[in-house]
């Protein structure tokens, strides 16, 4: 997929700069883009470390466990295939908690674990059951307390208030999550059972 995107950017950019007569800017952009990328990585590093450090403390202090407990009734409602103390739901809530706290590195392996556990008891075999669909949809709505990468990019770009967008992000994520869940419920095809 990335092969095509990258090709489209570079070949498309080449054709476009022929048409707009901006070949000089285009040729400079390769070098300046590379330089910009490294500068960006360096200026993002501090904010990324700040939050992954703080959120690791939160995880080790048992804050994750509290969040997981608060979430449990909602998860049971959304994933009725599994009981309250099932291994499946525990793995799912560990993944979602890691996402909320922005522990990206931990979240993906936990999500894979949750998916494998759900697959073990999946009667549809090569198709996801309703709970598995719900799990992926919740994951793609990006529910997180601090959108770390975005905040890091905003500070790197010289924002005077990199975090002012937080409440807007929460609101927008919540709306997107609700829409995703509603779509998953509406688009279920009962005949697959």
């Amino acid at each position: 997929m990335l092969n095509y995107i990258w090709l489209a950017m570079i070949a498309g950019g080449f054709v476009c700069s022929l048409l707009t007569g901006r070949m000089e800017e285009f040729s400079l952009a390769a070098g300046s883009g590379a330089e910009k990328a490294v500068n960006l990585l360096i200026s993002m590093a501090g904010v990324m470390c700040l939050w992954s450090g703080i959120m690791n403390i939160a995880d080790k202090s048992g804050i994750s466990a509290v969040i997981a407990r608060l979430m449990s009734p909602f998860l049971r409602l959304l994933m009725p295939d599994y009981s309250k103390d099932s291994e499946e739901l525990r793995a799912v809530s560990a993944n979602i908690t890691a996402n909320i706290l922005g522990l990206g590195n931990a979240a993906t392996p936990l999500g894979i674990l949750a998916m494998k556990k759900m697959q073990q008891s999946n009667r549809l075999i090569d198709r996801p059951n309703d709970s598995m669909v719900m799990f992926v949809v919740i994951n793609t709505a990006s529910v997180q307390l601090i959108p770390v990468t975005t905040a890091a990019l905003r500070s790197a770009a010289g924002s005077t208030e990199p975090y002012s967008i937080l409440p807007l992000v929460w609101l927008s994520s919540g709306v997107a999550l609700a829409a995703g869940i509603a779509a998953a419920l509406i688009l279920r095809q009962r005949k697959t059972y």
């Binding site: 950017m9 498309g12 950019g13 700069s17 707009t20 285009f26 952009a29 300046s32 990328a37």
Partner: peptide
């Protein structure tokens, strides 16, 4: 990808 986006943007 930043190289790609910067080039596309400059074009």
């Amino acid at each position: 990808l930043i190289i790609g986006v910067t080039m596309l943007s400059a074009s």
